[in-house]
């Protein structure tokens, strides 16, 4: 989690050069192979930083905060995501899980990803606690999905998102297999890998992702780590947050409050 700390350390001056850790160095060295090939093939002129009108991606580094104690399982986020992004039926860029737990047993469900909310449920055991956990792409820093993409169709942007270039994706599905969170799928319409983009078409216009926009209980929050006074930044910097499957060292950028041991 050293990277996380370096993010949270101090209100970094906007285009702060990141200290190069050993792992990063190795990764860069690995990437160099591809880079050299690209260079030899007539390196492309460095494009402008402009990814959208009036938007400089070096001025932002996004993070996501999910407070599981607030989630009521209404599924508004799942519906909003589908409407905003045209997510194909039966596939999910975000979904909500319900955990019903007793010291002896546990039950998890997510009917249609929570798209229509949750029905009442009877468990064979007497639950002692129960809660909802929204899930989505964690936009990991050390993401296994980008690592395994054979053609450079998956990548991580400078403002901290993991995106898929649907024009270069060959639809091999390796990234889908490599994501430990089940956040990716092969779209039945485009036959390419698809996933949550943190609504990049919204955040580059200063809007929040659709799921955050509609969340009625502020379970979902979206923030910018490059803004000193950002509430999400403050919560991650000062609060006790956890991430999903930390042992895999993927360094997720979705942080959770009140995560239970049952959640994977």
């Amino acid at each position: 989690m050293d990277e996380t700390e370096s993010d949270a350390r101090a209100p970094a001056p906007p285009p702060a050069p990141e200290p190069v850790g050993r792992r990063e160095f190795l990764a860069n060295a690995l990437r160099l192979g591809g880079g050299v090939l690209v260079f030899l093939s007539g390196a492309p002129a460095l494009g402008e930083d402009h990814v959208a009108e009036g938007y400089d991606w070096t001025q932002h580094r996004y993070a996501y905060l999910i407070d599981t104690e607030k989630c009521i399982g209404c599924g508004s986020c799942v519906r909003a995501c589908k409407a905003e992004n045209g997510v194909p039926d039966g596939f999910f860029r975000t979904w909500v899980e319900r955990y019903v737990v007793s010291p002896e047993a546990s039950h998890v469900d997510s009917p249609k990803g929570g798209l229509d909310g949750f029905p009442p449920i009877q468990t064979p055991f007497t639950p002692t606690k129960s809660f909802f956990v929204p899930k989505m792409c964690n936009h990991c820093k050390e993401t296994p999905c980008v690592q395994v993409c054979p053609v450079g169709a998956s990548y991580r942007t400078q403002d901290g998102l993991v995106l898929v270039d649907a024009e270069r994706c060959i639809g091999c599905g390796y990234c889908v297999q490599a994501c430990p969170y089940g956040s990716r799928f092969l779209s039945p319409t485009t036959h390419t890998a698809e996933k949550c983009t943190w609504c990049y078409h919204r955040v580059t216009k200063g809007l929040k992702p659709a799921c955050v926009e509609v969340c009625p209980t502020a379970t979902r929050q979206f923030g910018d780590m490059r803004r000193e006074d950002d509430p999400v930044r403050l919560a991650i910097a000062h609060g006790r947050v956890s991430v999903l499957q930390p042992h895999l060292l993927t360094e997720p950028q979705c942080f959770y409050l009140g995560l239970d041991k049952e959640v994977r």
């Binding site: 990764a27 053609v151 060959i170 639809g171 036959h191």
Partner: peptide
């Protein structure tokens, strides 16, 4: 492959951190 016509991308822009 979902897009067999792009299979050559593997040699055109190989991303060497991928086992593939």
């Amino acid at each position: 492959l979902g897009h067999a016509e792009r299979a050559f991308n593997v040699v055109v822009t190989p991303h060497f951190s991928s086992a593939m």
